[in-house]
Design a protein around this nucleic acid. Structure first.
Lengths: 156, 156
DNA sequence: TATAACCTTGACGTAAGCGGCAGGTTAGAC
DNA sequence: GTCTAACCTGCCGCTTACGTCAAGGTTATA
């Protein structure tokens, strides 16, 4: 039950993620996606991980409004996940793994903090708009009253 | 206790909002800010409402990630608040006010819906990252164990 | 082996969102 | 009146995040 080891060409990734091929190449160029494997002829071969990465990038962009430059730093923390899988299990490498893990934890905690912050601000904004909504409703009610009382046909 | 009826020049608004003068003129040009009053010589005179509008724009831009074009539509609903204040209280205009109010309510409700949506997505994202964080911690714990058991000095 | 469908790099284009001048005008204090 | 800081309207430039050809190479299928 390891992750499916299929490889996809750029067209399939594009369809699955809804991101254009141009944009996929652009992300690669900017270091947001690590250069995928290639076929003999040079065609890119993407993994399942790459697809997830693309989806992460889009989320960070649209939900959190980060620039691609910022996202680049953030996804570099993601790298570690892949590294962990690929790494050998000998004690020799363990201290290095530890360091990277701590780094990843630090970065991820910051991400969560940013998200919390955003949620908080959005909640405040929500309150603000709801208050305004209530005022509108109140004013509307008053107008309706005044109209009905001034009407030639009093209510009931 | 009506809202303070002071007028400010562009420099003061810029300082208070942290938005450059260039950007204020740009927003006006794009229809995000309605053209402010002017002095005889042509200097712009902004009201307290304008400042609030600017702050709203920036919130919508940064928190919700809307484009200026989208924000333009949204702030037009805000307009109504100002209109309500300025309008006469006679029955003649009340039906028009009613229509505008209903429109404002409709738009504002949509805003709240969008915000709710965003909060929901962010919450999901938060869970996702926290899960990953837990995994990192777990792996880290395992490594620490294996290192200490292999160490020449067993713990305690 | 031909041909369609897919891919490659490279270069130029574009919309949004401003920054930063230049060259001239105005407000307000002295 | 005059001086200076603050303001005005262009206008060109920049960055980000891609879109859009163009000209050609690759792969799968008949």
């Amino acid at each position: 039950m390891t992750t499916e080891n299929r490889f996809m060409q750029i067209g399939e990734v594009s369809e699955r993620t809804g991101v254009t091929q141009r944009t996929l190449r652009f992300y690669e160029e900017k270091g947001l996606l690590n250069p995928p494997a290639r076929m003999e002829g040079g065609f890119r071969l993407y993994s399942e991980d790459d697809v997830q990465r693309v989806e992460l990038i889009r989320q960070l962009q649209k939900l959190l409004g980060f620039s691609l430059a910022e996202i680049k730093d953030m996804v570099e923390a993601e790298e570690i996940k892949t590294q962990l899988r690929a790494e050998s299990r000998d004690n020799k490498a363990n201290e290095a793994r530890q360091r990277r893990l701590r780094k990843a934890i630090e970065v991820t905690e910051k991400q969560v903090e940013i998200i919390d912050n955003k949620i908080e601000q959005l909640s405040q904004m929500r309150v603000h708009w709801c208050t305004k909504l209530a005022r509108y409703h109140e004013v509307l009610r008053q107008i309706e009253e005044s109209l009905s009382s001034a009407s030639p046909l009093p209510p009931n």
